[in-house]
Each structure stands twice: as structure tokens, then as C-alpha cells.
Design a protein around this nucleic acid. Structure first.
Lengths: 144, 144
DNA sequence: ACTATTGTCTACAAAATAAGTAGAGTTATT
DNA sequence: AATAACTCTACTTATTTTGTAGACAATAGT
């Protein structure tokens, strides 16, 4: 699962992407439009500023805007930033690899093998789509 | 992330699949071979028995075996059983749909749209591979 | 300069979830 | 019987997540 915080982060960034090149958007405007607790959002946005994804302007007429063109912000990057990794298991992360506790030696672990492949498929999809892309809100469902 | 419990579950089932048609495997044998805390494993295996995925035999010469042919147990099913859903967000589950807290109306939520598509891709992969399939422990890495 | 407005930061509190254990009970075999 | 397994409910503990408090810093307008 994505944590609530990650979900808030993504929606906040989508909001900024939607308002790109229209001047800074105030925190309260984002909180209200996206239904995100105001105080929590300050933490989230400050982190995004520190990470360099968002720029902020203080004082009157202040607010936030995306630091990059929405086209250059991939969903994969956002999730990597907030969650540390795309992988479903610590030992299957390509960027932030960690050994799992109570596991087999990695060289023998089939779960890891499977999760590495899955991670790569997830990355292929999440790194193809950016904040600039339209997203079908109800994609077609092809049952197995 | 998959919880530790889900990971233990998968490895325990793999162990049973590896020992299929060789009589029941004792809990202690699984715990030792798979490096899973013994007491925790009792909880996990009892659940699998209740779910019908595993059959148990009590008493001397007792133990556990897979209830189905390994070929018929898909990884997708195991994860659905233990985690409730494959989706990364409650509202993107096909089987166990739930509304997300503090979200937009689902009809407007692009995060949901994206996560539905991702869920479907994950399902396609996880439902193709079963406990009978060989799994490359170090799959090739194709960077984006 | 002053004031209102808006973001920043650290630390904390509360709630939820996950991990693991205890221990008494049940069933089967010899 | 005795012993070797599994079963079940309830707990405890640890960890993570969610969210808030509150003092601080910067900027624009007057």
C-alpha cells in the first residue's frame, strides 16, 4: 500500500501541475481543493521543497509551484522520493537495496527474484507516465 | 510493501510446493529451513489451513502439505489472501474495493485511475506465475 | 519600519498496524 | 497412556503512520 502521506503528496503535486505557470498556489488552496489536512500538508510540501521538486515563495502572494515542467516529473520518481523505493520488499529495491530480516540468502530467494521482476514492470509503467499526462479515471478492466 | 507475514507465508508455501507428494512437512522443518519464527509460523499455517490452501495432519507423522497442485496456486492468489488485495491503494482494488479516506470523489481521482491500471498490470504478472514455476533468482535488469 | 500574510522547522502525541509469544487445548499414532 | 504434532484465542510489545503544536522566518504592501 501507498501510505496516506504518499497519496497526499501525489495529489498535491498533481494540483500544482494543473496550475503550472499561473503563479504560486497557496497551501490553503491546495489543502481545500485536495481535501488534505492543512497542517500535514505543510510537512509534505516542505519536504518536497527540500527535495527540490517544488519551489516556495513566502509572504504575501506566496505559495508553491512545481520546480520542474510537469512533463519531467514521473510518477515513479515521486514514489521513490516519498517511499524510498518502488519495490514491494526491501531486498528487491534497485535504488535503495536493503537486506530483508529473517530471510534466506538472497542468492537463493525466489521471492526476491519474483519481486525484482515485478518491481521492474512497475517501474516501466510508473516511469512512463508524468504529471503532464492525462490519466483515465476509469481504465478498462481486462480480467485474467 | 509486503508485510513480513505475507513474505513468510509465500516462502512457507514455496517450501510446501517444493516438497509436494512427499508426505506432510513438519512445522519445525519449515521454520528452520525458511528462517521463520516458529510460533509465528503456527499462526500463519493455521490461517492457510482455514483458507483451504494447505491441509494439516496432526499427531505423530503429522505436518502440512499443499492442498492443491502447486501449478494451481498463483502468486496473485496468495497475496490477495494474505493482504486482501493487490492494489496499492484501497480504492483501486478490484476484489476488495474500499473508499479512501480524505480523497476526492472517485470519479475525479487520477491517482485512482493510475493505480487501477497499475493493479491490473501487477495482477497480469502475478496471476501468470504459480508455485510450480521456476523463478530466476537474479532476473535481468532493463533500466528505463 | 510595521503589519499581515504565508511558508519552515522541530518536536511531540495519538492512533493504527504489525510482529511475535503464551499457553491451554485437540488429534493421531504407537 | 504417552508423546508428537497441529489449533486457537488472547495478549504484549514494537514500529510506523498520521497528524498537531507552536515558535520562527521571509516577503509584500503601506
Amino acid at each position: 500500500m501507498l501510505s496516506q502521506k504518499t497519496r497526499y503528496t501525489i495529489r498535491a503535486l498533481q494540483h500544482l501541475a494543473d496550475n503550472i505557470r499561473q503563479g504560486p498556489v497557496r497551501l490553503d488552496a491546495i489543502a481545500e481543493a485536495q481535501n488534505i489536512p492543512r497542517k500535514f500538508l505543510t510537512v509534505i510540501l516542505s519536504e518536497m521543497v527540500r527535495e527540490g521538486l517544488v519551489v516556495s515563495h513566502r509572504g504575501r502572494e506566496g505559495g508553491y509551484e512545481l520546480a520542474l515542467d510537469p512533463m519531467d516529473v514521473r510518477y515513479g520518481d515521486i514514489i521513490r522520493l516519498t517511499r524510498g523505493s518502488l519495490a514491494l520488499v526491501p531486498c528487491a529495491s534497485r535504488n535503495a537495496h536493503e537486506h530483508c530480516a529473517n530471510c534466506l540468502p538472497e542468492a537463493d530467494c525466489r521471492l526476491r527474484g519474483l519481486m525484482l521482476t515485478l518491481r521492474d514492470e512497475m517501474a516501466a509503467m510508473l516511469d512512463r507516465i508524468t504529471l503532464a499526462d492525462p490519466i483515465a479515471v476509469e481504465p478498462p478492466f481486462a480480467e485474467a
